[in-house]
């Protein structure tokens, strides 16, 4: 029984952490129409940033500044935001393909850098020497994981509330206006490039938060954790859940993460021995089929975006049609 509960806690923690990343992506893609092809780079920047700033000193690589944990986490988020600023600054005024290619490229380059630069981040062996916060008081076991789950859930709810407020604010309306008709927004004196860049950075900071939490949970990060497949998984979560809808994004995260873990377990349990080497390939094909299938048959996702009609004078937001 306790085994099942601790597994559930483990599963919920990871799914909740990934939900935060999906929420960040939803701001970029769902609300602003920005294509982020390298979610994993911003996730990784948050993870590496947090561990480097908050870890204990190591002789082999940089880091070990033993910063107060919330500051370390914040530092990781800033690293993700800074990366988004650089990529966005260079590409946001160009055709949308450029952002897609540049973000994809930054993910490849980031993983490559982390894998090779041993002095920076431990190379392929990953980053060690991070003590989980409050570790001395709570130990390593069940209690710690339960409390950490509560911490993650609080941050998930906070992110959700923040985004709900943000997209209902004038800024959020502006984002959707630019997504729908850039020229019209421009004619009203708005600067689409600036607004899109802001949205890209906020989204990436949120993805960075997710990465920081992920690294805290495992007290370890290595290039194996920031492979391109994570980008696909996070996308699949958003597409299945429904781009533009924050509740859908969270639901999609739990659904896809559940399906991914279940398929991994099923394949390792029931696939014949000679097929075991290929279970990864089968899972990748499945996630590819989920993405393509959803786009073909239900592009709006399971929980479609509720279009908000703003009417001045009367109530602030009237949800009148799906």
């Amino acid at each position: 029984m306790i085994g099942l509960i601790s597994y559930l806690i483990f599963f919920t923690t990871v799914a909740a952490i990934l939900s935060i990343a999906v929420l960040g992506l939803n701001l970029q893609w769902g609300n602003s129409g920005l294509f982020n092809g390298g979610v994993v780079a911003f996730f990784g920047a948050g993870a590496y940033g947090t561990l480097i700033l908050g870890g204990t000193p190591q002789s082999a690589h940089l880091g070990g500044y033993e910063l107060f944990y919330p500051l370390a986490l914040l530092g990781g988020m800033c690293a993700a935001g800074l990366m988004a600023w650089i990529v966005g600054k260079l590409t946001i005024r160009l055709r949308h393909d450029y952002l897609a290619i540049a973000t994809f490229g930054v993910a490849v380059a980031f993983e490559n850098l982390m894998r090779n630069a041993e002095a920076l981040a431990g190379g392929a062996q990953g980053l060690r020497g991070f003590e989980r916060p409050l570790h001395a008081w709570l130990g390593d076991g069940f209690t710690y994981n339960a409390i950490f789950l509560v911490f993650v859930l609080i941050l998930l709810i906070a992110t959700y509330k923040f985004l709900e407020v943000l997209i209902r604010s004038p800024f959020g309306r502006l984002l959707r206006a630019i997504r729908e008709d850039e020229t019209a927004a421009q004619s009203l004196g708005k600067d689409p490039a600036k607004i899109r860049l802001t949205s890209l950075i906020i989204g990436s900071v949120i993805i960075g938060l997710s990465g920081g939490l992920y690294a805290t949970f495992y007290a370890f990060i290595s290039p194996q954790d920031i492979l391109p497949i994570l980008t696909f998984q996070i996308w699949a979560m958003l597409i299945v859940g429904g781009a533009g809808n924050n509740r859908g994004a969270v639901a999609g995260a739990f659904l896809i993460w559940g399906a991914w873990t279940a398929s991994g377990w099923g394949l390792s349990r029931f696939a014949p021995l000679e097929m075991q080497l290929y279970t990864g390939s089968i899972q990748f094909i499945l996630i590819g089929l989920v993405i393509v299938g959803m786009l073909l048959w239900r592009p709006q996702g399971l929980f479609p975006e509720k279009l908000v009609v703003s009417q001045s004078g009367r109530t602030k937001h009237v949800k009148n049609r799906e």
Binding site: W29, A100, F284, I285, I287, G288, I291, V292, L295, L296
Partner: peptide
């Protein structure tokens, strides 16, 4: 839109490769 096609192309790449 065009951006859905970018998503789709990622999915297609994943399927073909594996």
């Amino acid at each position: 839109g065009e951006l859905s096609m970018v998503f789709a192309s990622f999915g297609v790449a994943m399927i073909i490769r594996n």
